[in-house]
Amino acid sequence: MYFLFSNQGTATRVILSNLISLWSGPWESWRHVPNEHKTRLFERFQMHFQWEDKWNARIHRCWEKCIAGKFPNLLRNVRNDAKATAKEKGKNVGEDMTDLIDFKPAWIRSEIWKQMLDHWNTPKWKAKSLRNKEIRGRATGGKHTLGSQSYASMKRKAAKILGRELSVHEAWKQSRCRKGSRPLDKDLSCSSSLLLDVDSEGNTQEENIVWVDDRAEETWVS
Results as ranks from 00 to 15, higher is better:
S129T: 01
S189R: 10
S153W: 10
A139I: 01
E201R: 13
K126S: 02
K124S: 09
L195I: 02
A127S: 13
L194Y: 05
G180N: 02
G163Y: 05
T204Q: 13
K143H: 04
K155E: 11
R178G: 05
D118K: 15
D118M: 13
K179M: 13
H169R: 14
G137Y: 15
N132V: 03
L194N: 12
N121Q: 15
L194P: 00
N121Y: 09
K179T: 11
V198C: 06
L166E: 01
S191H: 06
A171R: 06
R178D: 02
S148C: 07
S193E: 10
G180E: 04
W172F: 14
L184K: 06
R136K: 15
K128R: 09
Q205G: 06
K133A: 13
S153L: 07
A171N: 04
A152W: 11
I161A: 10
A159Q: 10
L166I: 00
A158S: 09
S129L: 07
K186Q: 07
T122C: 02
N132L: 15
L195E: 08
L194R: 03
L130Y: 05
A159E: 10
A139W: 06
G163N: 10
E201C: 13
K124C: 04
G142H: 07
A127C: 06
S193D: 05
W172E: 10
K179V: 14
Q149F: 07
S148V: 04
L196M: 10
A152G: 05
G180I: 01
E134L: 12
T140D: 15
S191A: 09
E134D: 08
S189E: 09
L195C: 04
S167K: 03
L117Q: 13
S191K: 11
E134A: 12
G180K: 02
L166A: 01
R164D: 07
S175V: 04
